[in-house]
């Protein structure tokens, strides 16, 4: 009887550990959600809040961070300051914008490196007109001092004119 109770307890603890303890995959997904939150803006956000969110978003990335957007001929490393500046610029141009990531897959080519494939959905308003846009992204992350940081963002253009 005691053995059965012990077995059930071990089973429950294992399930709890799997569900609640943070593992690398969960940490990366949480970082992605945090990045989406920092990049999103609601109308009426104060300048200080914008600056803070821009800086926090850049803090989730490695210095430098590679950005590739083939349709705009962008393929280069961005410093933390450049990233912050670009995020702020986007927030100023689009004061109401929501970032959300969907259908994220993660693979670990190495213990300290991960590759994500995900869909970024942008929704918001420009001049009182609603817009929706979506992009497929490949994101690389690196584990540095225990933290998973984004080291590259590439837009995958699967539609070719």
């Amino acid at each position: 009887m005691n053995k059965k109770i012990l077995l059930v307890l071990i089973l429950i603890l294992t399930v709890v550990a799997i569900v609640f303890l943070p593992n690398d995959k969960k940490k990366i997904l949480r970082n992605l959600d945090t990045l989406a939150e920092y990049c999103s803006s609601a109308s009426g956000e104060s300048t200080i809040a914008l600056l803070k969110k821009g800086a926090l978003a850049a803090k989730l990335c490695t210095p430098p961070c590679m950005v590739q957007i083939p349709s705009h001929d962008i393929r280069r490393d961005f410093s933390k300051k450049e990233l912050t500046d670009h995020i702020l610029m986007m927030k100023r141009r689009l004061p109401e914008i929501d970032f959300n990531f969907y259908d994220t897959g993660i693979t670990f080519p190495e213990k300290t490196q991960a590759e994500l494939t995900t869909t970024l959905k942008l929704t918001g308003k420009i001049n009182n007109d609603h817009f929706t846009d979506a992009y497929e992204l490949t994101i690389h992350t690196e584990k540095i001092d225990g933290d998973w940081l984004f080291s590259s963002f590439s837009v995958i253009e699967f539609i070719e004119q």
Binding site: Y102, D103, T118, A134, Y135, E136
Partner: peptide
């Protein structure tokens, strides 16, 4: 589809 079936064109 994009990477999955949540967002589609």
């Amino acid at each position: 589809r994009f990477t999955g079936k949540s967002i589609m064109l």
